[in-house]
Amino acid sequence: MKRETLMDVEAASRSRTRAPGNLVGARRRQLPTRVVAGRLVFLLPVTVFLLLMFAYPMAFNFWLTFQSYDLASLVTGASEFVGLDNIVTAINDPGFAGAAVNTAVFTVVSLVVQFVIGLGLALFFYNRFPLSTTIRALLVLPWLVPSIVATTAWRFIFQDPNGFLNQLLGHFGVPPVHWLTSSDTALLSIIIVNIWIGIAFNLVLLHSGLQSIPTERYEAAQIDGAGYWQRFWYITVPALGPVTAVLLVLGFVYTLKQFDLVWTLTQGGPGNSSQLLSTWSYTLSFNNNNFGQGAAVADFLFVASGIVIVFYTLVQRRQNNA
């Protein structure tokens, strides 16, 4: 998409230099250095900002990965190079494997269920009906509220033994579940809340994806005698491919980053039963003052999402070129 705009812009600039009496084009060639310098000033604030708030901390984190940075270092500032020790220790810690498995379950289940519910809602809201736009807009609210409000609301619902959910299940004869306080259900509870938050994102993107499918295609298929499911499988599903790819890639990245939910609901407990890699990294650094290992786990998270984003970009580029 961007590629096309860039090409348009280049074409426009070529035609502009050809236009007679274009002062801008002429002056640009006369004073290239000054103009270029003047234009780079636009990028100065963002360059400084990104260097200070991203490049520097990321390099710092990478450096920490290879340092013995602990509680004493906080005071003295001194630490020494320990090679791969932090990485090896972090990976061999049973906490890491548990958090990695939890993260995988959390991410896959969240993505799939959010997508299915989001698609169902997008299909439901495809046709306009009274209040449809307003109701669809209101459905975005869970995504907009501060995470602490979302978790407070759910903490109330999950209350043990008299919360709403347990009362509801009680009507069906299910005994009270210790949602957040049992190692069997803590991860499930967090997944439920995360799905609840993510539905809006899926609904909005899938809805705009559906709206961009030309209606003539459906009409033509209907004339050819295609039923609802046939139209869904042979028109809707293929047309939603690109949106789905974006959704899954961004969803993966955002879900991997998720920290607030877990920290405010269970802090990874009980035991480490709802520990994710993000909260594990934070626990290692800030609870155990094991900054090197915390940094190593954070690196791991970054590399995992980096691989997905780079892979996605390459595939997209190849499709654009094809």
Binding site: L74, S278, T279, F286, F302, S305, G306
Partner: peptide, 16 residues
């Protein structure tokens, strides 16, 4: 930058 886990920035910014 959208991909960078916030926990990755947390320790360095805290120390800095």
């Amino acid at each position: 930058t959208q991909v960078v886990p916030t926990v990755m920035l947390a320790t360095p910014l805290f120390l800095t």
